[in-house]
């Protein structure tokens, strides 16, 4: 109980710090968003419009920094992250909400799949050290060292251009309305297959290698020998004694990678023109769309934080030693 309270306090503090930095960052930058917007649309905006823009962005008042900070929190809690310049003054929350599901769906699924597959394969290879299965390791490592954009392009060239099995870009066919129909779901799977496949292949090597090495270390531990001396079935020794201990470091890397899902994988989204958060962040940066960038940073920070919480909880469940904060 005490453990949970301490962790909660820690995370609350981290979240507060992240949100506060997010508040100060744009205020420390030169110029304000409205001037930047006006510069882009020189002469096309009437003085009245400028005034209302200033009001919209809260730049009209002479409020103190503290009052602005309080306002910022109020807006944040009501889900208002401001408006995006580059997306026709659409609310930032809407813009982000339209990109995030694609990223989480695709990158998330690929990450989970890669982790599960890589850990299982790595565990088995480590368990049967010296067998022919060891050959998987260099192959998988080769694929993770190949630059991702190159692998993506090759995948497009082979499976899309030459064989025509999968579409080369976008999340669904042009002209289809997103909705919960069978046809749409099929399109999403078809469009997502190549990006997901390349993501899995590209990251599998790391998981396999990590798990295999941990497995080999753990297999030398006395408790594994004890388990064997007890006459336990090999499956039980493998799962309860070897793999459970070996997978602990994997788990923390997995939780960390969960946090980066929301940020998206920029290269993948560029290669496959996928409408995800990574591409959105790039667009926002090139367009100097500060409100959108700020919103994305906030969402990514919070996602990393949530991933950390998940890792903490999972670790506490799986490794009793971490539950003990002080002796």
């Amino acid at each position: 109980m005490r453990f949970i309270l301490r962790r909660t306090a820690f995370y609350a503090f981290t979240a507060w710090a992240a949100i506060t930095i997010n508040f100060f960052l744009p205020r420390m930058m030169k110029g304000d968003p409205v001037s930047a917007y006006l510069q882009k649309n020189q002469g096309r905006i009437s003085p009245e419009a400028i005034d209302s823009l200033r009001t919209l962005f809260g730049l009209d008042s002479t409020k103190s920094l503290l009052e602005q900070y309080i306002d910022y929190w109020q807006l944040l809690l009501s889900g208002d992250l401001g408006r995006s310049f580059s997306k026709g003054l659409a609310p930032v929350t809407d813009v982000i909400a339209s990109a995030i599901p694609w990223t989480i769906g695709l990158v998330g699924l690929a990450t989970v799949l890669s982790f599960a597959l890589g850990t299982a394969i790595g565990g088995l290879i480590g368990w049967r050290r010296g067998s022919r299965a060891d050959a998987i390791v260099p192959v998988a490592t080769f694929f993770s060292t190949v630059p991702y954009f190159w692998m993506g392009l090759i995948a497009i060239a082979v499976f899309s251009t030459t064989l025509g099995w999968f579409p080369a870009s976008h999340a669904y066919d042009k002209g289809t309305q997103p909705g919960f129909s069978l046809e749409f779901a099929g399109q999403v799977i078809q469009h997502g297959f190549l990006p997901a496949l390349t993501l899995v292949i590209g990251s599998l090597g790391g998981w396999i290698l990590g798990m295999r090495n941990m497995m080999i270390t753990v297999l030398d531990e006395d408790y594994v020998t004890v388990a064997q001396a007890k006459g336990l079935r090999p499956v039980r020794v493998l799962i309860n004694y070897a793999a459970r201990n070996a997978s602990l470091p994997q788990l923390s890397s997995f939780a960390m990678s969960l946090g980066f899902i929301v940020g998206g994988t920029l290269v993948m989204e560029l290669v496959f023109s996928y409408p995800g958060a990574g591409k959105l962040l790039l667009d926002a940066t090139t367009a100097k769309d500060y409100p959108l960038m700020q919103g994305l940073f906030l969402v990514i920070t919070l996602a990393v934080l949530v991933a950390n919480i998940i890792a903490d909880v999972a670790y506490a469940i799986l490794d009793p030693r971490t539950r003990q904060m002080e002796a």
Binding site: E221, D222, Y223, T225, Q228, A229, G231, N245, L248, D319
Partner: peptide
Amino acid sequence: RAFRWEKASMVFQGAMNALNPII
């Protein structure tokens, strides 16, 4: 496997490492 522990059991050297730390 049926023989082990049933007929002959073992006590190992490192009491620190002979028990699985996570169960």
